[in-house]
């Protein structure tokens, strides 16, 4: 199995944990995985990026253009990560918008979500969902990254069976959060399965769930 995955978002969204769940699941499934974490200057609120490489790799950075999958918890960060994408990269994007202070300082609003969706899907295959809404449904906004994992597994973008992820979620989180995260995973998974069933890649549908 070979997967080159870039995970991005904003500090505090759980980017590193998302990377850990995927890497650990790959290892439990008998694959080799390595991961790189870059902790920037800000404790919270800066761009955060984690690379996960599943397969026989040594260097933890995904080479430019070689990402199979970009997972972004934030739309502008998805756009930013596209500079590292190649023609066959699939993008999975959470819709939670976190406006950088730059916008306010320059009296600008956050770009229209549909515009971002349009820009990315014009060039690359894009899946996106309101993961925050599902996280709230699961009981805690902090489960948003686990919703994304379920969504990706449901879309069949990672060839690791869901049972392995169940085990990893139980191992990763303390008991009281494990149940919530299980639910978050299931909600993401079911959303993806509905999309797969209708054969419609993107847009509209996701807003209907909740």
């Amino acid at each position: 199995m070979q997967h080159n995955i870039i995970i991005t978002g904003v500090g505090g969204q759980g980017v590193v944990t998302l990377g850990l769940i995927i890497s650990s699941a790959a290892i439990s499934f008998g694959e080799r995985a390595i991961m790189s974490e870059i902790h920037g200057l800000a404790q919270r609120g800066g761009s955060v990026s984690v690379d996960v490489r599943i397969g026989n790799y040594r260097a933890p950075i995904v080479p430019d253009g070689k990402a199979d999958l970009i997972i972004s918890l934030e739309p502008l960060e998805a756009l930013r990560a596209i500079s590292r994408a190649g023609p066959s990269t699939v993008v999975v994007m959470g819709e939670e918008r976190l406006p950088p202070v730059y916008l306010g300082i320059h009296r600008q609003s956050y770009p229209d979500l549909n515009e971002i969706i349009g820009v990315i899907s014009h060039k690359l295959r894009l899946y996106h969902l309101d993961a925050m809404r599902l996280a709230r449904e699961a009981g805690d906004t902090r489960t948003v990254n686990t919703v994304m994992v379920g969504y990706i597994v449901g879309l069949g973008l990672i060839s690791i069976p869901q049972q392995i992820f169940h085990r990893e979620i139980e191992k990763t989180f303390a008991k009281k959060y494990a149940d919530m995260n299980m639910k978050a995973f299931a909600l993401g998974l079911q959303t993806a399965q509905k999309i797969m069933a209708t054969g419609n890649d993107t847009v509209e549908i996701q807003h209907g769930f909740g």
């Binding site: 904003v10 800000a42 609120g45 800066g46 960060e77 756009l79 500079s83 994408a85 950088p100 014009h122």
Partner: peptide
């Protein structure tokens, strides 16, 4: 040739590190 990069032609507002809320 496979390693070509994707350009979106869209300028993404920067997100430099910030002081926390």
């Amino acid at each position: 040739e496979n390693s070509e990069k994707i350009t979106l032609g869209y300028s993404v507002p920067p997100r430099p590190p910030v002081l926390c809320p």
